[in-house]
Design a protein around this nucleic acid. Structure first.
Lengths: 236, 236
DNA sequence: ATAATCAAAAATCTCGAGAAAAACTGTTGA
DNA sequence: TCAACAGTTTTTCTCGAGATTTTTGATTAT
């Protein structure tokens, strides 16, 4: 077998980019999330079109796509700008994520079949391996851990039939990833998330909805504290 | 006084369009919601650019903006298409709306001040007047009722501090409006929503969170039944 | 020194034409 | 009758240049 999960998202993005605009969109998104373009920074089309090797109109489209994800804000006739960050915003993102993700998990636990269980176990295994490599300190493992962490959370709620909840959760995950990168840069050794993930998996497979959502809730909210402890100038 | 509420949305759209692309975007959005462009219909740039009197690139941008609202879907290199509709989708939209809107109302009731109460009462009054005109059967009142109904629901949750919840709720409201128009076309005399709205207002002002969210929940879910009773070919 | 005014410069927004891809149609062969 | 193929037509995607708006900088007056 090749891939157990099949992502049928509202805005599918699993496959590779089929247009120049989308390619530029993804590069830009990565650069924004990784902090290459700082929050609040002005995004001048004239400069960026050379940097990303596309025409002005094409880059414009890419920027427009990023507005969808709320990673870029368009201000009337005054061009584009990287979405600013703030502690309040992150708190908002986190709490909204809790609301959506717990609801999705609850439905997943209720409706998930054997394949879902298998996917959860598999994703957890992948994540655990990435965590091991992370403490070993090899390079490039941060990227892999991020990917697998995201996959794990996605698989957890994959049995939730609501495409809209998954869509919104997707957007919020990208948003929070931006903040998490900031905190991880400062505090490169993550807290013991393994046990938390394990507990979520156990509760989920035991079909203990209340317990699973409670742990997931705490798990997500804990990232709030990590960002709260950042020096103020990190949040602009 | 002119306007009590001040909408500080994530993607503000209260003011008038400042660019041709945004103007085209709003016209297109209205036409899609009102059913001028049917669900699933292909949106050819070449035809539409004449109809909306803008350049090809500009219309392209407008379409891209509509993808944000999920009213238009972009398919790789095969152009744009009006987002299809289905009963499953509407059920999803409605249930997600309930999740978000009840949470927002709960926070609103918890945090709303006197001004919020005044806004709620005012919006309810405006809506009630529109309902009276609606049963009288004057023309153009449908449009006004829609606007005031939307304003009422918006004001109810306006004291919720979460910009993200309000943002998502906004998107979902546009979506459900499409479906509601279909059902209202068939069934032009709306059910007795006045009593429901009254009950919500009473519970909200009494700061009875549990009661208010329960009524709001039923209120939103009731629209589901209305659409369910439509003949199958209305939902494609 | 501060504020207001006006001109120059930079950036954005808009448009139409050319290149690339997809859809269509008619023909040929099994 | 059906399937496969190739040429034609349509549509989308991309690009650079011109028009419009915003921003910047210098000058002048209070």
């Amino acid at each position: 077998m090749n891939d157990l999960v099949s992502s049928t998202d509202l805005a599918s993005e699993a496959d590779e980019p089929k247009t120049l605009a989308e390619a530029a969109y993804r590069q830009l998104r990565r650069d924004i999330i990784e902090g290459v373009h700082r929050p609040g920074e002005k995004l001048r089309v004239e400069h960026l079109k050379d940097q990303y090797e596309v025409g002005a109109g094409t880059l414009r489209e890419a920027l427009q796509l990023l507005v969808t994800d709320a990673l870029v804000v368009a201000q009337g006739q005054r061009g584009f700008r990287v979405a600013p960050i703030s502690l309040d915003d992150f708190e908002d993102i986190t709490r909204t994520r809790v609301l959506l993700e717990t609801s999705a998990l609850q439905q997943s636990i209720e409706l998930g079949d054997d394949t879902w269980e298998a996917n959860v176990v598999a994703a957890f295994h992948m994540l655990s391996r990435a965590e091991e490599k992370l403490v070993e300190g090899a390079k490039g493992t941060r990227e892999e851990w991020e990917l697998r962490n995201r996959a794990f959370h996605e698989v957890l709620i994959s049995a939730c039939p609501s495409r809209w909840i998954r869509h919104f959760q997707n957007i919020l995950y990208h948003q929070s990833e931006r903040y998490r990168r900031l905190s991880l840069f400062r505090q490169p050794i993550p807290r013991d998330v393994h046990a938390e993930h394990q507990a979520i998996v156990d509760a989920a497979l035991a079909r203990n909805s209340a317990e699973a959502t409670r742990i997931l809730s705490d798990h997500i909210l804990r990232t709030l504290d990590a960002v709260r402890q950042l020096p103020a100038d990190f949040i602009n």
